[in-house]
Design a protein around this nucleic acid. Structure first.
Lengths: 215, 215
DNA sequence: TCTACCGTGATTGTTGAACAAAAGAACCGG
DNA sequence: CCGGTTCTTTTGTTCAACAATCACGGTAGA
C-alpha cells in the first residue's frame, strides 16, 4: 500500500492530498502559488507540478490565468461517481475468485473499521470502508482499474468531507461489509454482488440527501 | 472532442502524444529533457510538466534520476487493457438507450472508417475504430469513465504502433462495428453487447498473437 | 585477462529570480 | 450611480544555477 514517495513533488502531493480530503482546505478555497509554496517549503515550480497531479486526480480545479481551487463536489459528480462504482465494483465481486489474495485486504479493512468504531473514530471508519471497496476492485487484478478507482475514491472523500454526521454516513456499512465478505468466501459471489449493489444504491441516496440539505 | 489547448504545456503534450502514438518516437526511446525541450521550443520546466501529464496517461515511463522513456507495452498490459475494455464497454452497450446522442458519434465513426478503407489509410481506420469504442463509452454519460477510457485507448494505440500489418488489425472490425450499431438502434442491446464481447475476445487474441511474434 | 574500484562527465531534481500577460481592484471623471 | 482607466497582484513561462545521482571508462590489483 506504500506509494512511491520518490521525489519531492509526489511527497508534497501526498501531503496536500491529505490536507484536502482531510478537510483542512475547504472546497472552493483558492490556493495561491507563492503563499502555498512558502508554506509547504517547496519552490513554485515544484508546487505547480503538484497542482498538475492533483488536478488530474480531480481534487483541484484549474482556471486559466486565475489559479487553482479545491474542487467543489456537485450532485452531478456524486451521481457520476456512484455510477462508476456500480459498474466496476459489482462485476468485480460477482466474478471474484473466493481465495484471491485481495480477500485478506477486505478482511483487514473490516477489522480496521470495527476497531475504529470501538473508539468512535468515524473518520477512520470512513477510511477503512474505502479500503474495503478498494480491495473489492483489487479482486479484478487490473492495475489500471485500481488506479482509476483510487482517484474516484479520493474525489468521493472530498464530497464526504462536506457533510456532517459522519456516523450515519459510515457506521451502517461496517457490518454489511462483513456480510459481503462472508458471502464471498462461501462462494456465493452473486449474492454478495447483489448485496453490494443495494449497498451502493442506498449509500448514494444518503449522500445525495445530505448534500441537498446543504443547498 | 476539442481538448482545452489552454496553456503551452497541454499544447506541447498534445504534440508529443501524437509523436508517440504515431510511431515517431519508438517505445523504449529515452527522452532527454534538454534536447527535447530545445527541439520542441519550450523550456525544460514546461517539458517536465508535459512529462508528468503523459506519464500519468501511461504513455511515458519515468525512472527516478534516470529519465523518462516511451512506455514499452507488454503482454500483461494488453491483457489488462482488454479486461478493462470488456468490463466497461459491454455493459455500456447492454444498458444503452438506443436514441442516445452518442449514437450519432458511433455512426460518424463507422462512416469515417469506411471512407478511410476506401483510400487504404489503415492508420485512419484504426483511429476511427477507436472513436467508435469511445462513443460506446459515451453512452454511459459518465465523464469520468470517458476520461479513463481515453487513456486506455491511447495506451492501446501505442501497442498497435508496434505491430505491423495494420490492415489485418483493423479492417475486419469495420463492418462488425456497423452491425453492432444497427443492433443498437433496433433496440437489441443484448445482442449488440454479445457481439461486442466476441469482438473484443477475438481482437485481443489477434493482438496478443501478433505481439508474441515480435518476441 | 578479468574484476573491483574510483573518478569524471552527463543528466536529472530542485531552486530562485526574472519578466510578459492576464485578471482583479482601486481610482477617477461624468 | 456608472463606465472607463490605471495600478497591483497573480499566473504563465523562461532562464540560470547547483546538488544529487547515474553511466561510463580507466586504472590498479589479483
Amino acid at each position: 500500500m506504500t506509494t512511491d514517495l520518490t521525489g519531492l513533488a509526489e511527497e508534497t502531493a501526498s501531503r496536500l492530498r491529505n490536507d484536502i480530503t482531510g478537510g483542512a482546505l475547504p472546497p472552493g478555497q483558492r490556493l495561491s502559488e507563492t503563499r502555498l509554496a512558502a508554506e509547504l517549503g517547496v519552490s513554485r515550480n515544484t508546487l505547480r507540478e503538484v497542482f498538475r497531479l492533483l488536478t488530474r486526480e480531480g481534487l483541484l480545479r484549474h482556471e486559466p490565468n486565475r489559479g487553482v481551487f479545491v474542487a467543489v463536489p456537485s450532485m452531478a459528480s456524486i451521481v457520476d461517481i456512484y455510477r462508476v462504482r456500480r459498474l466496476i465494483e459489482v462485476p468485480a465481486l460477482a466474478h471474484a475468485w473466493p481465495r484471491h489474495e485481495a480477500v485478506a485486504q477486505m478482511r483487514l479493512a473490516v477489522e480496521k473499521a470495527r476497531a475504529a468504531r470501538e473508539i468512535q473514530d468515524w473518520r477512520m471508519v470512513g477510511s477503512a470502508n474505502m479500503e474495503f471497496h478498494a480491495a473489492i476492485v483489487a479482486l479484478t487484478d487490473s492495475a489500471r482499474l485500481q488506479g482509476f478507482f483510487a482517484q474516484i475514491i479520493a474525489e468521493l472523500r472530498l464530497a464526504f468531507g462536506l457533510l456532517d454526521s459522519p456516523e450515519r454516513l459510515h457506521e451502517p456499512y461496517i457490518d454489511r461489509n462483513a456480510r459481503i465478505l462472508d458471502l464471498l468466501v462461501e462462494g456465493r459471489q452473486d449474492q454478495a454482488a447483489a448485496m453490494l449493489a443495494g449497498y451502493l444504491d442506498e449509500s448514494e441516496r444518503v449522500v445525495l440527501a445530505a448534500f441537498a440539505r446543504l443547498g
